[in-house]
Protein backbone atom coordinates (compact mmCIF):
# COMPACT_ATOMS: atom_id res chain seq x y z
CA UNK A 1 0.00 0.00 0.00
CA UNK A 2 2.71 2.59 0.79
CA UNK A 3 4.46 1.56 -2.40
CA UNK A 4 1.35 2.48 -4.32
CA UNK A 5 0.96 5.75 -2.52
CA UNK A 6 4.53 6.78 -3.10
CA UNK A 7 3.71 6.96 -6.78
CA UNK A 8 1.45 9.97 -6.18
CA UNK A 9 4.54 12.15 -6.14
CA UNK A 10 5.85 10.84 -9.44
CA UNK A 11 2.37 10.88 -10.91
CA UNK A 12 1.99 14.52 -9.96
CA UNK A 13 5.38 15.39 -11.42
CA UNK A 14 4.40 13.58 -14.60
CA UNK A 15 1.12 15.51 -14.87
CA UNK A 16 2.92 18.79 -14.13
CA UNK A 17 5.53 18.00 -16.77
CA UNK A 18 2.84 17.10 -19.32
CA UNK A 19 0.91 20.28 -18.55
CA UNK A 20 4.05 22.34 -19.01
CA UNK A 21 5.04 20.41 -22.12
CA UNK A 22 1.64 21.19 -23.60
CA UNK A 23 2.05 24.95 -23.35
CA UNK A 24 5.70 24.64 -24.32
CA UNK A 25 5.05 22.76 -27.56
CA UNK A 26 1.89 24.67 -28.40
CA UNK A 27 3.49 27.89 -29.75
CA UNK A 28 5.85 25.80 -31.88
CA UNK A 29 2.93 23.91 -33.39
CA UNK A 30 1.14 27.18 -34.06
CA UNK A 31 4.15 29.00 -35.43
CA UNK A 32 6.01 26.42 -37.48
CA UNK A 33 3.29 23.98 -38.43
CA UNK A 34 0.39 26.44 -38.36
CA UNK A 35 -1.57 23.79 -36.55
CA UNK A 36 -4.13 25.87 -34.70
CA UNK A 37 -6.23 23.23 -32.98
CA UNK A 38 -4.72 23.98 -29.59
CA UNK A 39 -4.15 27.60 -28.70
CA UNK A 40 -3.27 29.62 -25.67
CA UNK A 41 -2.06 28.73 -22.22
CA UNK A 42 -3.64 28.50 -18.81
CA UNK A 43 -5.27 31.91 -18.97
CA UNK A 44 -7.41 30.68 -21.76
CA UNK A 45 -6.83 27.39 -23.41
CA UNK A 46 -8.57 26.35 -26.59
CA UNK A 47 -8.81 22.83 -27.99
CA UNK A 48 -10.69 23.15 -31.23
CA UNK A 49 -14.05 24.66 -30.45
CA UNK A 50 -13.82 23.83 -26.76
CA UNK A 51 -12.16 26.46 -24.65
CA UNK A 52 -11.34 27.03 -21.05
CA UNK A 53 -11.05 30.35 -19.31
CA UNK A 54 -9.23 30.75 -16.02
CA UNK A 55 -11.88 31.62 -13.38
CA UNK A 56 -10.18 34.69 -11.94
CA UNK A 57 -9.24 36.17 -15.30
CA UNK A 58 -12.74 35.57 -16.61
CA UNK A 59 -14.26 37.07 -13.47
CA UNK A 60 -12.04 40.14 -13.76
CA UNK A 61 -12.95 40.59 -17.40
CA UNK A 62 -16.66 40.31 -16.62
CA UNK A 63 -16.44 42.63 -13.61
CA UNK A 64 -14.42 45.30 -15.34
CA UNK A 65 -16.37 45.34 -18.58
CA UNK A 66 -19.69 44.87 -16.73
CA UNK A 67 -21.02 42.84 -19.62
CA UNK A 68 -22.01 39.24 -19.61
CA UNK A 69 -20.42 37.28 -22.38
CA UNK A 70 -21.66 33.73 -22.39
CA UNK A 71 -18.68 32.05 -24.08
CA UNK A 72 -16.48 33.35 -21.23
CA UNK A 73 -18.86 31.99 -18.61
CA UNK A 74 -19.10 28.65 -20.37
CA UNK A 75 -15.33 28.57 -20.69
CA UNK A 76 -15.05 29.15 -16.96
CA UNK A 77 -17.54 26.39 -16.19
CA UNK A 78 -15.18 23.44 -16.51
CA UNK A 79 -12.31 24.90 -14.43
CA UNK A 80 -14.83 25.99 -11.80
CA UNK A 81 -16.38 22.50 -11.68
CA UNK A 82 -12.91 20.99 -11.43
CA UNK A 83 -12.06 23.27 -8.52
CA UNK A 84 -15.42 22.70 -6.83
CA UNK A 85 -14.95 18.94 -6.92
CA UNK A 86 -11.21 18.50 -6.55
CA UNK A 87 -10.13 21.73 -4.87
CA UNK A 88 -7.28 23.79 -6.24
CA UNK A 89 -5.67 20.88 -8.04
CA UNK A 90 -4.85 23.29 -10.84
CA UNK A 91 -2.21 24.83 -8.57
CA UNK A 92 -0.58 21.59 -7.52
CA UNK A 93 -1.08 19.38 -10.55
CA UNK A 94 -1.10 21.70 -13.60
CA UNK A 95 0.35 25.15 -12.93
CA UNK A 96 3.65 25.69 -14.77
CA UNK A 97 4.93 27.73 -11.81
CA UNK A 98 4.40 24.66 -9.64
CA UNK A 99 6.35 22.61 -12.14
CA UNK A 100 9.34 24.92 -11.96
CA UNK A 101 9.09 25.11 -8.18
CA UNK A 102 9.24 21.32 -7.97
CA UNK A 103 12.39 21.33 -10.07
CA UNK A 104 13.88 24.11 -7.96
CA UNK A 105 13.00 22.24 -4.77
CA UNK A 106 14.68 19.15 -6.15
CA UNK A 107 17.80 21.10 -7.05
CA UNK A 108 17.82 22.81 -3.68
CA UNK A 109 17.68 19.46 -1.94
CA UNK A 110 20.53 18.19 -4.12
CA UNK A 111 22.68 21.25 -3.52
CA UNK A 112 22.13 21.59 0.20
CA UNK A 113 22.05 17.86 0.78
CA UNK A 114 19.05 18.23 3.07
CA UNK A 115 16.17 15.86 2.99
CA UNK A 116 13.63 18.43 4.14
CA UNK A 117 13.39 22.04 3.09
CA UNK A 118 12.76 24.67 5.73
CA UNK A 119 10.39 27.62 5.64
CA UNK A 120 12.11 30.70 6.95
CA UNK A 121 9.37 33.23 6.42
CA UNK A 122 5.96 32.50 7.82
CA UNK A 123 3.09 34.95 7.43
CA UNK A 124 -0.56 34.94 8.24
CA UNK A 125 -2.48 32.84 5.75
CA UNK A 126 -5.25 35.40 5.76
CA UNK A 127 -3.04 37.59 3.54
CA UNK A 128 -4.25 35.42 0.67
CA UNK A 129 -7.81 36.72 1.01
CA UNK A 130 -6.68 40.31 1.41
CA UNK A 131 -4.61 39.98 -1.76
CA UNK A 132 -7.59 38.63 -3.65
CA UNK A 133 -9.91 41.41 -2.47
CA UNK A 134 -7.28 44.10 -3.06
CA UNK A 135 -6.58 42.73 -6.50
CA UNK A 136 -10.24 42.74 -7.55
CA UNK A 137 -10.82 46.20 -6.09
CA UNK A 138 -7.74 47.63 -7.76
CA UNK A 139 -8.79 46.08 -11.06
CA UNK A 140 -12.17 47.73 -10.82
CA UNK A 141 -10.69 51.09 -9.81
CA UNK A 142 -8.20 51.06 -12.66
CA UNK A 143 -10.86 49.61 -14.98
CA UNK A 144 -8.17 47.22 -16.15
CA UNK A 145 -7.79 43.70 -14.84
CA UNK A 146 -4.48 43.39 -13.02
CA UNK A 147 -4.03 39.69 -12.69
CA UNK A 148 -4.44 39.03 -16.40
CA UNK A 149 -1.08 40.56 -17.22
CA UNK A 150 0.91 39.81 -14.11
CA UNK A 151 -0.35 36.28 -13.49
CA UNK A 152 2.82 34.16 -13.14
CA UNK A 153 1.37 31.01 -14.75
CA UNK A 154 0.04 33.14 -17.60
CA UNK A 155 3.39 34.87 -17.98
CA UNK A 156 5.18 31.54 -18.40
CA UNK A 157 2.94 30.81 -21.38
CA UNK A 158 3.25 34.32 -22.74
CA UNK A 159 7.05 34.30 -22.49
CA UNK A 160 7.26 30.99 -24.36
CA UNK A 161 4.93 32.31 -27.04
CA UNK A 162 6.82 35.63 -27.33
CA UNK A 163 10.09 33.74 -27.62
CA UNK A 164 8.77 31.50 -30.38
CA UNK A 165 6.79 34.11 -32.30
CA UNK A 166 8.88 37.25 -31.96
CA UNK A 167 12.26 35.78 -30.95
CA UNK A 168 12.39 38.03 -27.91
CA UNK A 169 11.24 37.97 -24.31
CA UNK A 170 8.76 40.30 -22.68
CA UNK A 171 9.98 42.44 -19.80
CA UNK A 172 7.27 41.33 -17.40
CA UNK A 173 8.90 37.91 -17.24
CA UNK A 174 10.89 39.22 -14.28
CA UNK A 175 7.73 38.67 -12.24
CA UNK A 176 8.16 34.94 -12.76
CA UNK A 177 11.77 35.17 -11.65
CA UNK A 178 10.62 37.12 -8.61
CA UNK A 179 8.18 34.36 -7.74
CA UNK A 180 11.00 31.84 -7.98
CA UNK A 181 13.23 34.06 -5.86
CA UNK A 182 10.53 34.11 -3.19
CA UNK A 183 11.04 30.35 -2.88
CA UNK A 184 14.35 31.12 -1.20
CA UNK A 185 12.50 32.31 1.89
CA UNK A 186 9.84 29.66 2.05
CA UNK A 187 8.66 26.95 -0.26
CA UNK A 188 5.90 28.36 -2.51
CA UNK A 189 5.90 31.68 -0.67
CA UNK A 190 4.01 33.28 -3.54
CA UNK A 191 1.48 30.45 -3.87
CA UNK A 192 0.88 30.38 -0.14
CA UNK A 193 0.23 34.00 0.58
CA UNK A 194 -0.01 36.08 -2.56
CA UNK A 195 -1.59 34.22 -5.46
CA UNK A 196 -5.09 35.62 -6.17
CA UNK A 197 -5.83 32.77 -8.56
CA UNK A 198 -4.98 30.26 -5.85
CA UNK A 199 -7.25 32.18 -3.47
CA UNK A 200 -10.10 32.06 -5.99
CA UNK A 201 -9.67 28.34 -6.54
CA UNK A 202 -9.46 27.79 -2.78
CA UNK A 203 -12.78 29.57 -2.30
CA UNK A 204 -14.40 27.61 -5.12
CA UNK A 205 -13.00 24.41 -3.66
CA UNK A 206 -13.96 25.19 -0.07
CA UNK A 207 -16.57 22.44 -0.17
CA UNK A 208 -14.56 20.13 -2.38
CA UNK A 209 -15.33 16.44 -2.65
CA UNK A 210 -11.77 15.22 -2.81
CA UNK A 211 -9.92 15.81 0.42
CA UNK A 212 -6.92 14.46 2.22
CA UNK A 213 -8.50 13.11 5.36
CA UNK A 214 -6.62 12.26 8.50
CA UNK A 215 -7.49 9.11 10.38
CA UNK A 216 -6.68 10.33 13.85
CA UNK A 217 -6.73 6.85 15.34
CA UNK A 218 -3.84 5.75 13.16
CA UNK A 219 -1.78 8.91 13.40
CA UNK A 220 1.43 8.40 15.32
CA UNK A 221 2.24 12.11 15.49
CA UNK A 222 5.53 11.61 13.67
CA UNK A 223 5.15 15.00 11.99
CA UNK A 224 6.55 13.91 8.62
CA UNK A 225 3.48 15.26 6.84
CA UNK A 226 3.99 18.69 8.38
CA UNK A 227 7.55 18.73 7.13
CA UNK A 228 6.81 17.69 3.57
CA UNK A 229 3.75 19.89 2.96
CA UNK A 230 4.91 22.41 0.32
CA UNK A 231 2.41 24.92 1.61
CA UNK A 232 3.62 24.58 5.19
CA UNK A 233 0.27 23.27 6.40
CA UNK A 234 0.00 20.80 9.24
CA UNK A 235 -1.91 17.77 8.01
CA UNK A 236 -1.23 16.18 11.41
CA UNK A 237 -3.53 18.81 12.90
CA UNK A 238 -6.19 18.25 10.29
CA UNK A 239 -5.21 21.23 8.16
CA UNK A 240 -5.29 19.12 5.02
CA UNK A 241 -9.06 19.43 5.17
CA UNK A 242 -8.85 23.21 5.47
CA UNK A 243 -9.57 25.65 2.69
CA UNK A 244 -5.84 26.25 2.12
CA UNK A 245 -4.95 22.69 1.09
CA UNK A 246 -4.32 22.29 -2.63
CA UNK A 247 -4.61 18.50 -2.73
CA UNK A 248 -1.11 17.75 -3.93
CA UNK A 249 -1.10 14.56 -1.88
CA UNK A 250 2.51 14.88 -0.76
CA UNK A 251 1.53 14.25 2.85
CA UNK A 252 -0.10 10.94 1.97
CA UNK A 253 3.15 9.75 0.42
CA UNK A 254 5.19 10.14 3.60
CA UNK A 255 2.66 8.90 6.12
CA UNK A 256 4.05 5.60 7.36
CA UNK A 257 1.04 4.91 9.53
CA UNK A 258 -1.37 5.22 6.60
CA UNK A 259 -3.28 7.86 8.50
CA UNK A 260 -3.59 10.32 5.61
CA UNK A 261 -5.51 9.37 2.52
CA UNK A 262 -7.33 10.93 -0.36
CA UNK A 263 -11.04 10.57 0.24
CA UNK A 264 -13.93 11.12 -2.10
CA UNK A 265 -16.73 12.36 0.05
CA UNK A 266 -20.35 11.78 -0.75
CA UNK A 267 -23.05 13.47 1.22
CA UNK A 268 -22.42 14.00 4.90
CA UNK A 269 -18.92 12.65 5.02
CA UNK A 270 -18.31 13.28 8.70
CA UNK A 271 -21.27 11.14 9.66
CA UNK A 272 -20.13 8.54 7.20
CA UNK A 273 -16.66 8.54 8.63
CA UNK A 274 -17.99 8.13 12.12
CA UNK A 275 -20.05 5.19 10.96
CA UNK A 276 -17.46 3.34 8.96
CA UNK A 277 -14.35 4.33 10.87
CA UNK A 278 -12.67 5.27 7.64
CA UNK A 279 -13.86 6.63 4.37
Amino acid sequence: MPQQRRTIHSKRLFVLACAFFLILINPFLNFYLEWNVIQGWYQSFGVGKLWFVSPLEGLESLLVSKQIYWPTLIGMLLPVCLAALLGSVYCSWLCPISFFCEILDYLKKKVTGRKWLKDRLLLSRRILWYVLVAEILLSMILAAPIFVFVSPPGLVGREIMTAVFFHTLALEGVIVLLVFAMNLFSRRLYCRYFCPLGATLNIIGAKRKLKVVQDITRCTDCGLCDRICPLGLSPSKGMAESIYCWNCGECTTVCKADALNYCWETGDWRAQERLSGEC
Binding site: N26, P27, N30, F31, E34, N36, Q39, G40, W41, Q43, S44, F45, G46, V53, S54, E57, G58, E60, S61, V64, S65, Q67, Y69, A143, A144, P145, V148, F149, G154, G157, R158, M161, T162, F165, F166, A170
Partner: peptide
Protein backbone atom coordinates in the same frame (compact mmCIF):
# COMPACT_ATOMS: atom_id res chain seq x y z
CA UNK B 1 -8.01 46.60 -21.75
CA UNK B 2 -10.71 45.57 -19.31
CA UNK B 3 -12.19 42.80 -21.39
CA UNK B 4 -9.07 41.29 -22.89
CA UNK B 5 -7.56 38.59 -20.70
CA UNK B 6 -4.22 38.55 -22.52
CA UNK B 7 -4.43 34.91 -23.46
CA UNK B 8 -2.57 35.51 -26.72
CA UNK B 9 -4.75 33.16 -28.71
CA UNK B 10 -5.36 35.76 -31.42
CA UNK B 11 -1.59 36.05 -31.88
CA UNK B 12 -1.20 32.30 -32.13
CA UNK B 13 -3.87 31.79 -34.77
CA UNK B 14 -2.95 34.76 -36.97
CA UNK B 15 -1.53 33.10 -40.11
CA UNK B 16 0.15 36.30 -41.29
CA UNK B 17 1.78 37.12 -37.92
CA UNK B 18 0.12 40.52 -38.13
CA UNK B 19 -0.86 40.60 -34.48
CA UNK B 20 1.75 41.35 -31.87
CA UNK B 21 1.55 41.50 -28.09
Amino acid sequence: AGKCIRCGRCVEVCPYRSIEL
